[in-house]
Lab assay of single mutants.
Amino acid sequence: TTFVALYDYESRTETDLSFKKGERLQIVNNTEGDWWLAHSLSTGQTGYIPSNYVAPS
């Protein structure tokens, strides 16, 4: 499932994924509650993102 970032997010830990508003993200795993494992289609990096910062594209 592809989502789009609603806001900028700066990672707080090394497992988080930083992203910019408008960036497209492929969700890898969304069974972890409020933090989803995502892959950035812009940077190619993978990490955890706050689910309330993204919406379906």
Results as ranks from 00 to 15, higher is better:
Thr1Val: 13
Thr2Lys: 06
Phe3Leu: 06
Phe3Val: 09
Val4Gly: 01
Val4Asn: 03
Ala5Gly: 09
Ala5Phe: 00
Ala5Glu: 00
Ala5Asn: 01
Ala5His: 00
Leu6Thr: 08
Leu6Lys: 15
Tyr7Lys: 12
Tyr7Phe: 11
Asp8Asn: 10
Asp8Glu: 05
Asp8Gly: 06
Ser11His: 14
Arg12Pro: 04
Arg12Ile: 10
Arg12Trp: 06
Arg12Asn: 02
Thr13Glu: 15
Thr15Glu: 08
Thr15Ile: 03
Thr15Tyr: 04
Thr15Pro: 04
Thr15Arg: 09
Thr15Asn: 15
Thr15Asp: 08
Asp16Thr: 14
Asp16Met: 05
Asp16Leu: 04
Asp16Ile: 11
Leu17Gly: 03
Leu17Ile: 05
Leu17Trp: 03
Leu17Ser: 04
Ser18Lys: 08
Ser18Ile: 01
Lys20Val: 09
Lys20Ala: 10
Lys20Ser: 10
Lys21His: 07
Gly22Pro: 00
Gly22Tyr: 02
Arg24Asp: 08
Arg24Tyr: 13
Arg24Val: 14
Arg24Thr: 13
Leu25Ala: 00
Leu25Glu: 01
Leu25Val: 04
Gln26Pro: 01
Gln26Met: 04
Gln26Cys: 13
Gln26Ala: 10
Gln26Leu: 07
Ile27Thr: 06
Ile27Ser: 08
Val28His: 05
Val28Arg: 12
Val28Asn: 03
Val28Pro: 09
Val28Ile: 13
Asn30Met: 10
Asn30Arg: 12
Asn30Cys: 15
Thr31Trp: 09
Thr31Ile: 05
Thr31Lys: 05
Thr31Ser: 15
Thr31Asn: 03
Thr31Arg: 13
Gly33Glu: 15
Gly33Asp: 11
Gly33Cys: 12
Gly33Thr: 09
Gly33His: 15
Asp34Asn: 09
Asp34Glu: 14
Asp34Ala: 09
Asp34Trp: 05
Asp34Thr: 03
Asp34Arg: 11
Trp35Thr: 08
Trp35Tyr: 14
Trp35Ser: 11
Trp35Val: 09
Trp36Glu: 01
Trp36Pro: 04
Trp36Cys: 10
Trp36Phe: 11
Leu37Asp: 01
Ala38Gly: 06
His39Lys: 09
His39Gln: 10
His39Gly: 05
Ser40Gly: 02
Leu41Lys: 08
Leu41Cys: 10
Ser42Gly: 11
Thr43Glu: 04
Thr43Ala: 04
Gly44Gln: 15
Gln45Val: 05
Gln45Ile: 08
Gln45Arg: 11
Gln45Lys: 02
Thr46Asp: 06
Thr46Val: 10
Gly47Ser: 00
Tyr48Asn: 05
Ile49Thr: 02
Ile49Gly: 00
Pro50Phe: 07
Ser51Gly: 05
Ser51Ala: 12
Ser51His: 07
Asn52Phe: 14
Asn52Lys: 14
Asn52Cys: 11
Tyr53His: 13
Tyr53Ala: 09
Tyr53Gln: 04
Val54Arg: 01
Val54Asp: 01
Val54Leu: 08
Val54Gly: 01
Pro56Ser: 12
Pro56Ile: 04
Pro56Gln: 03
Ser57Arg: 12
Ser57Tyr: 03
Ser57Pro: 03
Ser57Leu: 08
